[in-house]
Design a protein around this nucleic acid. Structure first.
Lengths: 151, 151
DNA sequence: GCTTGTTAGTTACATTCACAACCAATAGTT
DNA sequence: AACTATTGGTTGTGAATGTAACTAACAAGC
C-alpha cells in the first residue's frame, strides 16, 4: 500500500515542531482571542511591551521577530483599543516609544497569568529533566542562544 | 525600565515552540518553494501521499491535521501541475483516491531526501539523548501519542 | 418513492498576510 | 544648501487563509 517509507512525517522535525506549536497556540488562543478579541500578533506585541516595558516598534520587530508591517498594524489595533499609547521622541521624530496604558497593563497582567498557568500545565506532562532539555533544544533551534537576552 | 518580569516570552512554551518551528520551516521552505514553487500545504499533502501511498483527501485531512478547504486547494494545485491524479471510486463517488504521478513521485523522492538530510543536520546540533527527548516531548505535545500511527 | 441526515469535497467571501512601494525624518557628502 | 542614503514606519495590492455556505452522493426512516 505505501511506498518504502523513507521516513515518517512525524520524524521530520519541522513538521513535528509545527504540529506541536500549532496545538499549543490554538489552545492558548482562546485566552487572548476569546476574552479580548485579539489577534496573535497583537497578543505578542502586548506581551513584549508588558514584559520589557516601553520600546519602539522597531525594538519589537527585533525582539519578537515580526515584520514591521505586522507590528505596525498590531500597534494600530492596540492603540484604537486604548491598550497602548505612542509618544514621539523630539530628538528623532521617526521613533515613537510605545507604552501600555493602565488598561493595557491590566489585560497584560491577566493574560500573563493565564500564560504562566498554561505553561505550567504544559510542562506538567513531562519530567523536570525533559522540560529543561526541551527548553534548551528549542532555544537552540530558534537561535535565541546569545542574542535576545541582551537588550 | 521594565515591569517586574512575570516571565519572559522565551519561557512561554507556545511562543518558544512557534519561534523554533518558524525558524526551521522557513529554512526548509527554500527546497519546496524555491525549487518547485510549492506552498507549505502543497508540500505537506505531497509528503503524506508519498509516505503513506494513495489515500483520499479526507484521509489527508485527518493525518496531516489540515482543514478540508486547504487540502482541497492544495490537491487542485498539485493536480494542475501533474503531480497527482484523482480516481473516483465507483462504490462511492464522493470519494476520490489521490495518487502521485511518476513526476510527483520524483519530486517527492527529491524533497524527501532533502528533508531527511535537513533533519539530520538539525539533530546534529544536539546530543542523541537530547534529540530523543525532544522528539518524545513534541510527540506528546502534538498529541500524536497513540493516534496517527494506526491507519 | 420522498424526506431527513451525514459525509466528501468545492466555492464564496471576508479577514489576514507577505511583499513592495512609499513617506517622512535624519545622517552623511559634497 | 543640495544630493544621496538610510532608517522608522505606513499604506496598497495580490496571494493565502478561515469560516460558512453550498453541492453531490450516499444512507436511513417512513
Amino acid at each position: 500500500m505505501h511506498r518504502d517509507s523513507e521516513f515518517d512525517p512525524q520524524d521530520f522535525l519541522p513538521y513535528l515542531l509545527n504540529q506541536a506549536a500549532e496545538t499549543l497556540s490554538l489552545e492558548f488562543q482562546r485566552h487572548y482571542r476569546g476574552q479580548y478579541g485579539m489577534l496573535r500578533t497583537e497578543w505578542r506585541v502586548l506581551f513584549h511591551l508588558g514584559c520589557y516595558g516601553e520600546m519602539t516598534a522597531k525594538d519589537i520587530c527585533v525582539r519578537a521577530r515580526l515584520h514591521k508591517t505586522k507590528v505596525s498594524r498590531a500597534v494600530a489595533a492596540l492603540q484604537t483599543r486604548r491598550f497602548l499609547t505612542r509618544r514621539e521622541l523630539e530628538r528623532d521624530r521617526r521613533h515613537a516609544v510605545l507604552q501600555l496604558t493602565a488598561l493595557g497593563q491590566k489585560v497584560f497582567a491577566d493574560l500573563s497569568r493565564a500564560a504562566h498557568a498554561f505553561d505550567l500545565k504544559a510542562r506538567a506532562a513531562m519530567t523536570p529533566d525533559e522540560a529543561e532539555i526541551l527548553h534548551r533544544c528549542l532555544i537552540r533551534i530558534a537561535g535565541f542562544e546569545t542574542a535576545q537576552r541582551t537588550g
